[in-house]
Design a protein around this nucleic acid. Structure first.
Lengths: 183, 183
DNA sequence: TCGCACATGTAACGTGTTACATGATTCA
DNA sequence: TGAATCATGTAACACGTTACATGTGCGA
């Protein structure tokens, strides 16, 4: 007996969902935003976006409505879409997210504006902070133990990874302060 | 009439090729390295690695030889594989690489050890440096122009992107000095 | 009226993901 | 002897890439 796959949405789906949760957008509008921002990492071509919108429509996460004012078709988020988005936003962070899906973590944070409480934002950032700290320590330990055996370029590339995570941690601390200041 | 697709290798293919260019490895050995390093971003599961090795074998980029000493099967890079690797290593950097494929740039640098001259390494890093500088400037301009209209979380996430690129630029400068010092 | 940006799609293809499956070796 | 690690795979499925295709509206 086959398990009925729950059809887990991709990062791209969530990126789209997050965008239309802020404002209704046409498929083209979504593509433009993807192209001009870091979100482009989740895909920009028509062959990616339009099929994604179609399956999300089928799953009733978004709906395509015609604006009465300018007579243009735009995608709106549905109740079901909002629920899915919120569940995704509050999903506890794991180490695997930190080590392999940093982009998605930042994406989640980007969409927490409207759908998460200040408490949730703080929990999220603090957990990110703690996991990052542990992960960086692991990287440093590995570096210390192995750097003499590593080829020069391997070591230098590895160090790029470390610096990159340190930059994220720094951002995390700064951002934590910003959010804490909010009332 | 159909164009005969030249079957462009993926980042994963190059990651594997680079690894076996340093030392012969079993499929399992390759997976272990992917799992324990940042290269894991290019895929770690058996369902990714083994099929990749198969197609690379078919394309005669690698060959599977049995070691006479320990009687284990390991993949070796072929002449053709080395040629492909070298072409990839010296391919000029473009802005699109910087904005969307930073991981691949670092990966390329990691494998330049044996197959690139010091001159080539310097050209590579200097070009990376220049493109990064331009790209960061673009990000900062965008930030300046738009930050008042952006939602708070959007702005903060955007700032993560900026910090991340700055960290890469910093690494690039440092690494340039290291390479320059080499004789 | 030329070209560009707007706007939305489809088709073929190959790749990655996920889950399943198997067996050998090593060590406690 | 049982568990963990070594070691290699397969199958279904869906997704993303690439290339193609079409048509509108607008400003120079």
């Amino acid at each position: 007996m086959k398990k009925t796959t729950p059809k887990k949405p991709t990062s791209l789906d969530f990126a789209i969902l997050g965008l239309v949760s802020h404002q209704p957008l046409s498929g083209y509008g979504i593509r433009k935003i993807f192209e001009t921002t870091e979100m482009g990492n989740f895909g920009t071509s028509p062959g990616t976006i339009y099929p994604a919108l179609k399956r999300m429509q089928k799953l009733m996460l978004v709906e395509n409505l015609t604006s009465k004012t300018d007579n243009k078709n735009k995608f709106h988020i549905t109740i079901k879409g909002k629920e899915l988005l919120q569940n995704w936003l509050v999903r506890p962070l794991e180490m695997i997210d930190v080590s392999r899906k940093r982009e998605e973590i930042i994406l989640r944070f980007a969409f927490m504006d409207k759908y998460s409480s200040q408490k949730q934002k703080l929990v999220f950032l603090e957990s990110f902070h703690d996991l990052l700290t542990i992960y960086i320590k692991q990287l440093l330990d590995y570096h210390k133990a192995e750097n003499l055996q590593m080829p020069l370029h391997g070591r230098l590339s590895f160090e790029h990874g470390i610096e990159s995570y340190k930059a994220t941690l720094k951002w995390c601390k700064k951002t934590l302060l910003v959010i804490k200041k909010m009332t």
